[in-house]
Simulated assay, not measured.
Amino acid sequence: MPDEATRRTDLADLVSSRMKELDLSYRTLAARTVDPESPDEGPTWTRGTLENLAKGLKVKVPGPEKVRGLAAGLALPHRLVQDAMRAQFFDIDSVRVEGETLDEDTLVMLRHYETLSPEDRLKLRKIAEDWSQMRPPSVD
């Protein structure tokens, strides 16, 4: 885990900005964080944990049910919240490239993507795009 001086705040920033957009309090957001895959379990986040997250204080790495619940609470696509979580807690950037895969894009996850030059980012995206268009050989 990166030290405090270098720790990323992608998820915290996403939560803070979305709360402002939707005019939500921490308590209201907490009540909305219900995992769509297990709605009977109720909210997955507490007011205090959300406030700590948004203020940049340390919180535990959220599990899949919490990520789904937070996405629901913020009314955002699951993968957007998932990408922010990976970036903040694991320093992994998610780069999506359109292609011919099951979900219509290829996901490349790597560390320190943001430190690459624009030229190197373009090269990486091209590699991922080419890779996503490769088809496995037919097995007859």
Rank of each mutant, 00 (worst) to 15 (best):
F89W: 06
E98T: 12
T33Y: 08
S25R: 11
T49G: 05
L53V: 02
V34R: 04
R135S: 14
D105G: 01
L24Y: 12
V139N: 09
L122W: 01
E37R: 12
I127D: 07
E104I: 14
E114D: 14
P137D: 08
T46Q: 06
T6Q: 11
K58C: 04
L74I: 07
L29I: 05
E65P: 05
A12H: 01
L80M: 11
M109A: 11
Q133A: 15
K60E: 05
T106E: 13
L122S: 05
P64G: 12
R96D: 01
R18G: 03
R7K: 13
L11T: 04
A31F: 04
G99V: 01
L116M: 09
V67S: 02
M109D: 09
G56Y: 06
R47Y: 03
H112Y: 09
Q133D: 15
L124W: 01
T49M: 10
N52E: 05
V59W: 09
R79K: 14
V61Y: 13
H112K: 03
D23K: 07
Y26W: 00
S17D: 03
A71W: 01
Q133F: 14
R68H: 07
A5Q: 07
D35A: 05
K66D: 01
V139G: 10
A12G: 09
M134S: 09
S138D: 14
E100M: 11
G48Y: 11
M134H: 10
S138I: 15
K126E: 11
D130G: 01
T106Q: 14
E51H: 08
D140E: 08
